[in-house]
Nucleic acid binder design. Sequence first.
DNA 1: TATTGTGTTATTTTT
DNA 2: TAACACAATA
Length: 724
Amino acid sequence: MLSAQEILSPLNDSQAKAVSYKEGPLLVLAGAGTGKTKTLTSRVAYLISQNIYPSQLLVVTFTNKAAGEMKHRVAALLNQPVDGMWIGTFHSIAARILRKHATNVGLRNDFTIIDSDDQLRLLKQLLKDHNIDEKRHPAKQLAYVINGWKDKGLTPAMLQPSDAYDFADGHGTQLYHEYQQRLLSLNAADFGDLLLYNLILFKEYPALLHDYSHKFRHILVDEYQDTNVAQYLWLRLLASAHHNICCVGDDDQSIYGWRGAEVGHILKFEQDFTGASIIRLERNYRSTTHILNAAGALISHNKNRLGKTLWTEDNQGSPVQVNAFFDDIEEANAIADNIDKTHFSHSIDYSNIAILVRASYQTRTFEECFIARGLPYKVIGGLRFYERKEIKDVIAFLRIVHQPYDLLAFERIANAPKRGVGPTTIQRIIHTSRAENLNIIDTIHTMLSQGSLKGKAQPSLQTFIQQLQEWQSLSSTVTLEELCQRIMDDTGYIQALKIQNNAESQSRIENIKELFSSLNDFETLEVFLDHVSLVMDTQQSDNTDMINIMTLHAAKGLEFDTVFLPGWEQGIFPNQRALDDAGEKALEEERRLAYVGITRAKRHAEISFASRRRMFGSYQYNLPSCFVEELPEEHIAINQASPTNTTHATKHYNDNHGHSFDQGPSIEADFNQDHHYGGLNVGSRVFHLKFGYGKILRIDGDKLDIAFEKSGRKTVIASYVDAA
DNA sequence: TATTGTGTTATTTTT
DNA sequence: TAACACAATA
């Protein structure tokens, strides 16, 4: 165990001050790259060195990734594993508390945590039962409204009469109320409920609040600028006994307002927690002066901020490059060229390069460009492992084994694989189950004996409930993997995928196999199900060297040597819809997003915009983003592409940069036509991970011109395809 | 009930 | 463009 002195010595003055701050509320305003996590983890270690028991500490983060990293770093700092510390996401900690006292709010302690998919399904049923036209009032919107209320800590009873009009001409409150009832009868809670029920518990059972608020002697919160009202109230309650709450955050990096985060919380911290101190971390250890000052000037256009000025002892570096292009294709090609240069001439790893876009659809242009050129890349974000259809299906089977009342899980897999049970039958079973308060097995059993199930559905459901009962008895005797294997065999789920035999079904089978192998990490079904509902991110640890493509949101907290920020155009970034919805407030959030983007770069930032962009099948013409003008001249270099009318960007992209790219692989087509490459010939059928199956039309060195069956004609590098 | 065709509509995303 | 939901059809 390190001494306090050893913990403090590697820190700068402000960091050390924050780490050793004694008692009372503390806000650490930590700018980008100022050692936020280091400070927070050091403080945890410091408190432990001051004889605070780990079990008296509550450390809250937003993501599992952050919680994991924190745990890891504290353990490394103390040189011993930390047991007993409550460290986790808001949701996982709230779930832990709620499981202990579930019966106080009408749930059993084995309640299911449902995701947004199930939530939507439930709301659709509700709307149908109320004869509300889903076209005029989509379930998605209702989900948004209800989640919004929950984020604000509002139960149906707390709503104002006018709130009802937030959905379907005044039906909002009633629907919210019934949705909550249905969740209770399903013994389920959605993500918002986890926090909301905690608030209810603390309010209605003061003894519980007393216990928890005295148990935790220190509360530490990461990314405080992202807290929504419910989380904020939760923190205030838990901190009410000792006021030892240390929040770390950066108002300039608040980018989740659209999902309930309130920058206001960090702005009024001093009013909320009397006697609070604020410590600013302004020394940046990441970026060069040019990058820092460019970002700083940009963000200074925001009015709603506490204000801080980042500085660095690093050198000037090179100015932020601002590149103008004719269209999106030219932009992508120029970035690809630039990456070649960065990688080959300046020896920067691909993994140290990122392309950050405003919206995920923008990644496509880059993917296509990089595939054609054979540049290795990965798209961060996108759909996660547990969100895949086949994985959710397998999990639904497990859920129903675990909880035979789980109608949502039943709805999901009643006809997967197809067994002749159509939507009408499913709805009837669900309605009966709800009306009679019977579990799935009993419901189907009853309906079968009444002869109210017809056609193909009758025998398949008979088999289904038999199987379900077998699985239930198996679940207590065999391992999770064996149970899963058995379910797949009995239902023929994998068999059905095998019959489809296309690239998609192939990868689905792979995914299921991957799930199988991860099952062994879990002791019981219950532990596994809790894991999948709360720990959604399965970061595949990929140690291959690849360019990172992701949204600006996904980039928060990361850093790269070189960062490309394409699509800085009015309407795209700042995003038009955001502006329409929330005006000036949204513009400030978009600006913070721009700030986050620039400050990800250590040495090199390249902003770009194009005058023409292909969007949704047609061309859109955009003006440069207003943020471009807000960048200070002395820290940027503007590179205007030579005026041209051709779309053949490759002809003149060199003009933009004033150098050529001989070192990189030539993109000029060489006309020495080949007829084979390795084992591949013109006319061969091949398989590509992304594009599926196709036929080779032309071979040119290692570049193959392929007509894909699904994705059309594309040029790809030979090493990316296999003979089919 | 399963398949095919048509129409609509396009942020950001963690838990 | 492309994905997805829903209606019309086999």
